[in-house]
Design a binder for these strands. Structure first.
Length: 156
DNA sequence: GCCAACGTTGGC
DNA sequence: GCCAACGTTGGC
């Protein structure tokens, strides 16, 4: 299977790319995803896949860097913890419902690729790129290699 | 199994 | 803070 590309959203107030840079070994489990479609994408991730790190719900929504999948998804223990905001009583250790891959920091762009500039890129179509779809709420989405290259080409 | 109400996401 | 989008819940 060829390497695949993804986009992972995070609210920088909760977990930013700088938090990942500061993390031990610059790696972190990508936990807390509680949406089935996003979960299914997570489970499709393979070691070596690359993903854009996207900051959402912040003053300037933007792709801020690149991360790499370094461990395939394992059950997300935050779903088992009644004190966690991500607690889901329907997910148990015996029948886990939610999963998390481990990701590693790869690169931070010197200037972020803003959502505005992504919208203005004629090589990216809202029809194919979920991030640009109106009302999009998906926090994990696939990126085609064409889109990946088109976005990388926006770095000056 | 339908669907209205409700809650959450996320850009603006 | 507003509001559109849309996923989830729960009554029937």
């Amino acid at each position: 299977m060829a390497k695949q590309y993804w986009l992972l959203k995070s609210e920088p107030d909760a977990f930013s790319i700088d938090d990942l840079i500061k993390a031990k070994q610059q790696t972190s489990f990508w936990d807390g995803v509680r949406n089935y479609q996003a979960r299914n994408y997570l489970k499709a991730m393979k070691v070596g896949d690359l993903a854009f790190f996207y900051h959402s719900s912040c003053p300037i929504p933007a792709i801020v860097g690149i991360i790499e999948v370094v461990q395939e998804p394992i059950p997300d223990p935050s779903a088992f913890d009644p004190k966690s905001p991500y607690y889901d009583p329907k997910s148990t250790p015996a029948t886990p419902r939610w999963f998390m891959p481990k990701v590693k920091y790869k690169k931070k762009f010197s200037s972020p690729i803003t959502l505005e500039s992504l919208k203005n890129n004629p090589r990216l179509s809202p029809a194919s790129f979920a991030l640009l779809k109106r009302g999009n709420r998906l926090s994990v989405m696939p990126v085609t290699s064409q889109e990946w290259q088109a976005i990388l080409a926006m770095i000056d």
